[in-house]
């Protein structure tokens, strides 16, 4: 016999209690966001390379939306199209 929390209860509890352990601030998250996303897309262990980022993204929905947006933009190929200014 099993007893399982409903997903919405889990979501409520997760939102109220947040992640355990050390996490970045929103400012530090924004500072590292570009590197973290490039690491993610390269297949590297982004969570190990940017400690505290994963916990923050689990706790801060707005920062996680920013991460998903940046990732989607790069995956869409827009980030690689324009050339840098010529010397």
């Amino acid at each position: 016999m099993s007893e399982r929390r409903r997903p919405d209860d889990v979501d409520v509890l997760r939102g109220l209690l947040g992640p355990e352990g050390p996490e970045l601030s929103c400012e530090a998250c924004f500072e590292a966001l570009d590197r973290y996303v490039e690491l993610e897309l390269s297949g590297a262990d982004a969570d190990a390379r940017v400690p505290g980022m994963r916990a923050h993204l689990e706790g801060c929905g707005a920062c996680d939306e920013d991460r998903r947006s940046l990732r989607a933009l790069i995956e869409a190929g827009l980030a690689s199209a324009p050339p840098a200014p010529a010397d």
Binding site: F30, R35, V37, E38, E65, L70
Partner: peptide
């Protein structure tokens, strides 16, 4: 001066535009 070259410059720059757009939309 805060750009440290830890990602491509365009990736670093894009995050500012995405943040501005997301905040304005919300």
């Amino acid at each position: 001066d805060g750009y440290r070259g830890e990602s491509r410059f365009t990736t670093w720059a894009y995050k500012f535009a995405l943040l501005e757009a997301a905040v304005k939309l919300r």
